[in-house]
Simulated assay, not measured.
Amino acid sequence: MEPRESKLRPIPAQFPKSFTKPDEPWHHYLTLDLIVYVLSYTLFHPWTCWILVLCLRAQYTPYGNIEMRIAMAWAMLMSGIGIFGIFSDRFAYGRPREVDLSEEVIVITGGVEGLGGLLADTYGMRHANVAVLDTKKVSDEESEERGVLFYQCDVGDAEQVERVAREIVEDLGPPTILINNAGIVRPKSILDTTASDVEQVFRTNTLSHFHTLRTFLPHMLESRRGTIVTISSVLGHLGAAHLSSYAASKAALHALHHSLRAELAQHPHGADIKTILVSPGQMSTKMFEGVKTPSNFLAPVIAPTDVAKEILRLVERGESGEVVMPLYARWISVFGVLPAGVQKVVRRLSGVDTAIQRAGLVKEKMVAAEKSG
């Protein structure tokens, strides 16, 4: 008897690019973020701290002994900090909403590649209703393979967003989760940046958020549930040489996010519409490929998977919040209150203003003119 042919469609497999790169030395993977992560589940975790107290009691350590007092005081301190954090988040963001992916309609801008593509593929594999808006055209075969509907659309154009929104409502239903991820960068000095460059960056990075919010937010308010994810950047707090338009467009998103939260708090149907602000440091995507941080220990390049994991966690828990990583990015707002001289030293040591130029991503007319003169 001849074997029957398999009806399963073969899917080509390709190893991630990391497999083609040479192995780094062991200390390359040792970062401040990793150390803090381990400590957060050991020395700084209330459960672990109380286990230590129980272990001391199991050895019949008297309560009056100095080691028992220190262990109990530390456990109570960690418990107090943990409880305060829970109440602080509940007071700031309210109760989480119920999220059932089978009933959600997810819209992702700029979701063909990079972080947006990773989020789209993850939801597609879980059979969620996903609509991706991107200027890149995707074939029907690839769309079916990824389990995602792709709509060719320039999100910087309000009319195109409104047109595609009507198609999404007809194909999938009213959107309930909006992930504003689309972004571009034009690495040039301010004097070399044209009006067209600035307009294009702001249209894609900033104005697109206004277009999608005006278009999709009414559906969420009508159904009284939703989640809005705003993808910004740590450069929105810092600024950087040769990235003026990009940094300015991302800084605007921080203000937009806080304004959105304030308006939703005043709207009678806005209680169950959650907001998430994402401000990552440098990610290992094509946008800043070749840019190196001054210290892999203090400022590691983060993988898009790590950022995506945190976004997915908050979205699926139905919570509001912020995704800020790596560790230094959480304290970047403190940078602005430092003395001006200290700020200058920190910027020079960090190399934030020279990283783009060292990576060879800047197209400078001024430098060429000076050399020729």
Rank of each mutant, 00 (worst) to 15 (best):
P3A: 01
L8T: 04
Q14L: 13
F19I: 06
D23W: 09
L34I: 03
I35D: 01
I35A: 08
Y37V: 03
Y41F: 15
T42M: 01
W47G: 07
M68C: 03
M76R: 06
I83M: 12
F84A: 04
F87Q: 08
E104D: 11
V105Q: 00
I106P: 06
E113K: 03
G114S: 06
Y123T: 06
Y123P: 12
E141A: 14
E141C: 09
S143Q: 09
E145S: 15
Q160S: 12
E162V: 09
E167N: 11
G173T: 07
I179K: 10
I179E: 01
R186S: 11
K188N: 08
F202Y: 07
T204R: 01
F210R: 03
S232F: 11
Y246L: 12
S249W: 00
A255T: 04
H258V: 00
L260T: 10
E263P: 00
H267S: 12
G270Y: 14
T275M: 03
V278S: 08
P280N: 02
G281I: 08
Q282V: 06
Q282N: 05
T285D: 03
F288M: 12
K292S: 09
K292Y: 02
P294L: 00
P304T: 08
P304C: 05
T305K: 03
R313D: 13
L314I: 06
E319W: 06
E319Q: 14
E322S: 13
P326V: 10
I332G: 05
I332D: 04
S333D: 13
F335Y: 15
K344R: 15
V346T: 05
R348V: 12
T354Y: 02
G360I: 14
